Simulated assay, not measured.
Amino acid sequence: MLILLLTYIAPLDQVDQHVEAHMIWVKQGYERGWFLASGRKDPRTGGVILARGDRSEIEAYIATDPFMISGVTRYDVTEVVLSRAAPGLEGLLP
């Protein structure tokens, strides 16, 4: 599993200009079967995406995020090998 941490590096008014395009990009990540869950950080300083798949493919996909292209966010990618999950979340396990 990959944890994609987005951190905004631009003011929110600049981020907001790209939210619609970013959400289309997120939807496509789900359609490809890569994204499992996603949402905003609270307070609104970025977001988190839980993903699975080939790390190099997902990192290449991150480069196409409108947030990245416009320079309003940075990504930190952490790979985790899950060994246990709560009931109902077993599908997250390798």
Rank of each mutant, 00 (worst) to 15 (best):
M23Q: 14
T73K: 00
L36D: 03
V77W: 06
A21F: 03
M23N: 11
D16N: 15
V15D: 04
L93D: 10
I9F: 00
Y30K: 06
I3Y: 09
L92T: 03
V72H: 04
R55K: 15
T64A: 10
V48Q: 05
G91D: 13
I24F: 06
R40Y: 06
L5H: 09
P43R: 10
I49V: 15
V26W: 02
I49R: 01
V81P: 00
T78I: 15
V48H: 02
A86D: 10
L36Y: 01
A37T: 06
H22M: 09
S83R: 13
W25V: 03
M23Y: 10
V19G: 05
G33M: 09
P87M: 06
L6D: 02
G39E: 02
E57I: 15
E59F: 10
I49C: 00
Y61F: 14
E59C: 08
P66G: 06
G46K: 07
A63G: 08
Y75E: 00
T78H: 10
V19L: 14
L93A: 10
R84P: 01
Q14R: 13
F35S: 01
A63M: 12
T7A: 12
L36P: 00
I49M: 06
G53I: 07
M1P: 09
P66W: 09
S70A: 15
R74K: 15
P94F: 09
D65L: 03
G47Q: 02
L4S: 01
A60K: 13
I24H: 12
L4T: 00
L6W: 02
S56V: 15
G46Y: 04
T7Q: 14
L89E: 06
L5P: 01
W34C: 07
V81K: 13
V81L: 11
M68F: 10
G46P: 01
V72C: 04
P87S: 11
